[in-house]
Computed example of a mutant assay.
Amino acid sequence: MKTKIQELRKAGKISQAELADAVEVTRQTIISLEKERYNASLELAYKIARFFGKTIEEVFLFEE
């Protein structure tokens, strides 16, 4: 699943560690999400989207 996490994070000048702390995961999880090696759970997707003030669909691009 493609994400806009890295783009949003860089636009807001937020480090991977800061985002990880805010959504209660490890920095490694954020790295894996950005590199599209890991799909977020619904709960984590919601937390990340809410952190950026976006909807889940604006952050996570679902392609069938």
Rank of each mutant, 00 (worst) to 15 (best):
V59M: 01
E36T: 10
K10N: 14
E18S: 14
I48F: 07
V23L: 03
L61M: 08
I56T: 05
L33V: 13
G53H: 01
I30E: 07
A22D: 01
E18Y: 06
A20E: 06
V25Q: 06
F52G: 01
E24N: 12
F62N: 05
I30R: 11
E43Y: 09
E24D: 12
A17K: 15
G12Y: 13
E57F: 10
I48V: 15
T26E: 04
A45W: 02
T29N: 08
A45L: 04
E24W: 06
F60T: 12
E57A: 14
T26Y: 02
K4I: 09
E18N: 10
N39K: 10
E58Y: 00
V59G: 00
K2A: 09
T3R: 02
Y38A: 08
T29E: 05
S15I: 10
L44E: 10
K10V: 13
K4D: 05
R37C: 07
E18H: 10
E64H: 07
A49K: 08
Y38F: 15
T29I: 11
L8R: 03
Q28A: 15
T55I: 02
K2F: 09
M1D: 05
T26Q: 02
F60K: 04
D21G: 13
L61S: 05
L8N: 06
K54H: 09
N39I: 06
A22V: 01
I14P: 07
K54R: 14
A20Q: 07
K13I: 08
E43F: 06
K35G: 06
K4A: 15
R50E: 02
I30D: 08
Q28R: 14
T29M: 10
Q28V: 13
G12R: 15
E7V: 03
T29D: 01
R37K: 15
K10I: 12
G12A: 15
R9Q: 00
F62Q: 08
L33I: 08
Q28G: 12
Y46E: 11
I31C: 11
S32I: 00
